[in-house]
Structure formats: C-alpha cells, structure tokens
Design a protein around this nucleic acid. Structure first.
Lengths: 228, 228
DNA sequence: ACCTGAACACCGTTCAAGT
DNA sequence: ACCTGAACACCGTTCAAGT
C-alpha cells in the first residue's frame, strides 16, 4: 500500500480542491447534463466532497457558470485563426464562437448573462481589433462591435434554447426542427403567409451557413457605408 | 349588501381565475420584481388563491412565462407602425421590439427561451413580409429573417442581462455602465487595446441609437448584395 | 487554511380532499 | 369543473464544528 513520493503528491493534487478542478468538473457536468445538471450537490459528489467546500473557492453559482464559460471562450479566442483580410478574420472568429457554442450550448446563455465580463470582452477585443484594421472610424467602432457581438450572442442564445428545448422534450435537434416546421405550416394562411412559406426551408437549412449569412450581411453593410 | 346583476357578474369575473387574469398578474409581477419575482407562491398570493389553483389553468412556469411574453409581443406587433418603404417598416418594427424589451426586460430572455413559438413567430412574420416586399429571393428569405431576428434577440438578451445584473447589485443602469467602463479602462493595454480604447464610448452611448446602427448595417448589407 | 454536512429558506409541481 | 393547501423532491447558500 506504500506509494512513491511522486504518485503520492500527484494524487494529493488530484484530490484537493481548486478553482480549476471545480471549473473543469462543472464543464463536464454542463456538457453531459445541460444547464440544469449543474448543481452544487451533483458537483460536490463528483468531486467527492460536501457542497459547502465549493464555496471556499467560488463565490456563487453565477460566478461558477461565468468562469466555466470563460474557460471555453478563452480556449476558443486563443486558438489561431486563419484569414488574410480583416473581414476574413472577423468571419473566422465569429465562426469559431459559433462552433464553440454548438459544442457547448450552455455557453450561449452563460455569455449573455455575464454582460461586460471577461468572456464577452475576449470576443469584443478580437472583433474590435479587426474593425480598427478595417479603418472603421473611432466614433463608430463601439456601435459596430456591439452590433456584431449582439448578433453572435443572439444566435448563440437561440442555439442554446433549441438544444435545451429539444432535450426537455426528449427530441434530437432535427426532430425538433421538424416539429416546428409542421406547426408553422399549419398556421393561418391569412395571418402568417410568410412563416408558412418559409416553414419548408426550416428543416433543410444549415445553421452554420445561416449564421455566416448574417455575419456577411453586416460586413457588407460596413463596406456599403464605407466603400469596400 | 345586495348587488345588482351587472355588478355581481363583474365582480365574479374579477374574482374567478382565468388564464388572462393569471397572465396579467404575472406581467405585473415581472415588471415590478423581475424574473425571479415570478413564483407560483407570490402569484397565488396576489390572486388570493393557492399555488395549486394556477395549475388548473396553466401547464407550467415555462408556459406561463411564454404566455406573458406573448401578450407583450402581440400588443407590440399589432400596433400600427409608420414607414413608407419596406426598409423603413423593418426599422420601425425592430425599434418597437427594442422599446418593448426596454420597458419589460424579462421579455428579452423569455423570447429567446421560446424558440419557434408564437411570440417569435409574430416578429418573424412582420419582418418576413417586408423582406418579401423588398424582393429578397425566396431561397434567401429564411437566412435573412433569421439573421435580423437573431440580432434583435441578441440585443434584447443583453438588455435583459444588463437590467438583471444592475438590479442584483443594487445599481441603476448608468451606474452599471460606469462600473463596466471603469473596469475596461483598467485592462492590460497590451492584451486589450481595443476594449480600453472603447471604454469611454460606453458610458456616453445611446442603446437605442446603437441598436439601429446594427439594423441599418444589415439593411445596407441586403442592399449591397442586391442593389438598393 | 480548508473542509464537512446539517440546516435554512426557498423553489416548481403534485394530489388527495373539498365545493 | 374548479379550487385548497399540505406534501414532495428538490434548490443555492450559510455556518458551526471539525482538521
């Protein structure tokens, strides 16, 4: 039963609590059971401790969620991205966020609920630097990043909501879209002609492609009011 | 103590429960105490009944929130809007949603959490009809409304989060923005040059104007890839 | 300094029992 | 048909007590 020093200290480190270990376990819990799967009781069980212990390292559940979100966003924003022009880089950064939220839907809602905080600032900074490079005048920079960011958060939130809703009703994503499509195509033709006409496109569409359409719309808009 | 028939029946209607009365009371509760103020216990107290009674009329809290949200959105989307061109109408509809969410921040998050449901569809329909009038090709209509809607939901979600965060910390909105601005201006200059440079614009900006900048960016984008 | 786990003050939801 | 209100199965958070 004796253990070498190395093994001992490794195990020690593995067993003692730390913010990082708590955040790591939170991410695992959020990925596997969604936002409502993250409770201090489930978390403390996974960490083989009591619920109170976590409060020594983390101030609140809201802080914990923001920290978990930031871990994902930091990873995403620090990854290299390729693109030759500022607009190409903006596209790539936005797409990286889309993919991160697609892989971790809870990040979508966590981002929104932490306004002005680190995770949002990381994205803001990446986008803003490219707007600067693009020659957007200082006075217009805030409104422009703000718009891009709002769009990304909007899509991310929808993504999170879709996943949550599908999970709650025991459907997968395509079943969910099919259900919405069916409901839409049964709406009153006089009141909802557009929604009905678009119901068919719903189940065939590609979220990722649609996301980029919106980004390109905004980038084109920046070009239109500035010239290329 | 006798009462006329009319008075009697009026009072009856006021006292007996109905989905409409429950929704009305929910809106009042949400407006006055925010999203966390809406509980079945607080609601049943305000309606002078027991928590169980509400379940006779409403299936779940999530349904209740969506119904309350829909009441606001329906009111907003049914109000006449002026605008001579499709783009002007889109602007006006979007702005009406912004103002509605500004007045009832909880609508921002409720909208996002009811994907594909009635409140969203009302907005989708209004915007979509104008895109159709604008001559956006059928194949592109879904991605285009979807982008506009995501942007509106994104701004709405941020709006809700800002209000929630400020309320939680006992600040008003301008204090909150001032605090964020201060934090941003103290960020590391090498890592966050853009965010620092933009911190000053934060406290002076006008949410409503910024919102329209994003809408115009997208409308210009639609124009750019189509001509006018 | 860090952890334990019982306890507090809540939730949404259900359901027997009433009218 | 509609309402009552106790009870169930949870929450986040606190805090005395331990090591």
């Amino acid at each position: 039963m004796r253990q070498g020093k190395k093994a001992r200290s490794t195990q020690r480190r593995e067993e003692s609590l730390s913010p990082d270990r708590i955040i790591e376990a939170s991410i695992a819990l959020l990925d596997s059971s969604g936002e409502k799967g993250l409770t201090f009781r489930a978390l403390s069980e996974r960490l083989a401790t009591g619920p109170g212990a976590i409060y020594w390292h983390i101030a609140s559940k809201s802080d914990l969620l923001t920290a978990a979100c930031d871990a994902i966003v930091a990873r995403t924003m620090n990854a290299p991205v390729d693109g030759a022009t500022p607009k190409a880089i903006i596209r790539a950064v936005a797409l990286a966020m889309f993919d991160a939220i697609d892989a971790h839907p809870w990040v979508g809602s966590a981002l929104t609920r932490a306004p002005g905080q680190l995770p949002m600032v990381r994205v803001l900074e990446r986008l803003g630097q490219q707007l600067h490079a693009l020659g957007v005048p200082d006075k217009e920079q805030w409104a422009t990043v703000s718009a891009l960011l709002s769009y990304i958060l909007g899509v991310g939130g929808q993504n999170a909501a879709n996943t949550h809703y599908a999970r709650e009703h025991g459907l997968d994503r395509s079943n969910f879209l099919g259900e919405v499509s069916t409901i839409w195509s049964q709406l009153d033709p006089d009141e909802y002609p557009f929604t009905r006409s678009v119901a068919g496109q719903l189940s065939a569409h590609d979220d990722r492609v649609d996301f980029l359409v919106g980004i390109d719309l905004m980038l084109d808009g920046i070009g239109a009011s500035r010239g290329r």
